[in-house]
């Protein structure tokens, strides 16, 4: 398609192109692809999130760049793409999790926080005067016994739940996934290190941490542990942030 025809469909994300595409949503995916990456891996006894931060300058305080966000005692989110857009979604997720607690007196199932965010993101692709979110999210967590029993993920012998949300507002469930820069390489790394044929997930959270950091490092020539973040969510719920030292140890083992 030539540039002049295409421009008309660029103007609003609420306008389809003749071949049925929403260019603004695709450009938003492009924004995600340019963001520093984040990964999620499910284990038998929990779920892992990890991310790599980009430091524009050594003077920039690394702690002020947030890629992993707590949502509730049992849920966390990793983001890639526009950080400012991600913050809005994170805030929304926190309120959604608390609203579920207030309304039903139980922790929110991970899937219901995901779908409530998905509903909101989708709205931004269909409402006049808005632009889509330039961010993708990985929503990870632990469901209370019995909750989330209808999801496909609860059947696979894993306590952890892991969903991806892209700028179109479509939720996907994953066993292991990467978003952001180099996500294709990262996903290939997961596809080769995990056995998709295995019906049940048997890996431990510690194994999953290695898999996650491995995947992130697959697209990183000189992994710098200070640029990596990692957290695990286990039944309890127990959320643990892995220290830079622990991350460095795993990265060294991977490199050798």
């Amino acid at each position: 398609m030539d540039d002049t025809r295409r421009q008309a469909y660029d103007r609003g994300q609420t306008i389809f192109s003749p071949d049925g595409r929403l260019y603004q949503v695709e450009y938003a995916r492009e924004a995600v692809e340019r963001g520093s990456p984040a990964v999620g891996v499910r284990a038998a006894d929990g779920v892992v999130l990890a991310a790599r931060k980009r430091r524009a300058s050594p003077l920039l305080e690394a702690d002020s760049v947030a890629k992993l966000h707590r949502i509730d005692d049992h849920i966390a989110i990793a983001s890639a793409g526009h950080a400012a857009d991600a913050r809005q979604l994170v805030d929304r997720a926190r309120v959604a999790a608390q609203r579920h607690r207030l309304r039903y007196g139980e922790p929110a199932p991970v899937e219901s926080v995901t779908t409530s965010l998905a509903d909101h993101i989708q709205e931004s692709t269909q409402t006049g005067g808005t632009r889509p979110y330039g961010t993708a999210l990985l929503i990870a967590g632990i469901d209370q016994n019995g909750a989330g029993g209808s999801t496909a993920q609860s059947g696979a012998g894993s306590a952890g739940q892991l969903f991806e949300l892209d700028p179109s507002g479509t939720p996907y469930g994953w066993r292991a996934v990467g978003i952001g820069e180099g996500s294709t390489t990262i996903r290939e790394s997961f596809e080769s290190s995990l056995d998709p044929a295995a019906a049940d997930i048997e890996t431990t959270v510690d194994d999953a941490v290695t898999t996650a950091l491995d995947g992130l490092a697959a697209d990183d020539d000189e992994p710098d542990p200070d640029a990596y973040e990692c957290l695990t969510i286990e039944p309890g719920p127990k959320v643990t942030t892995r220290s830079t030292d622990e991350i460095a140890t795993v990265l060294e083992e991977t490199a050798s």
Binding site: D73, D91, R94, L102, G105
Partner: peptide, 14 residues
């Protein structure tokens, strides 16, 4: 009590 718990959790996360 429910609303205080909600406010506490949101405060902690924010």
């Amino acid at each position: 009590v429910d609303q205080l718990r909600t406010e506490r959790q949101l405060y902690k996360l924010d």
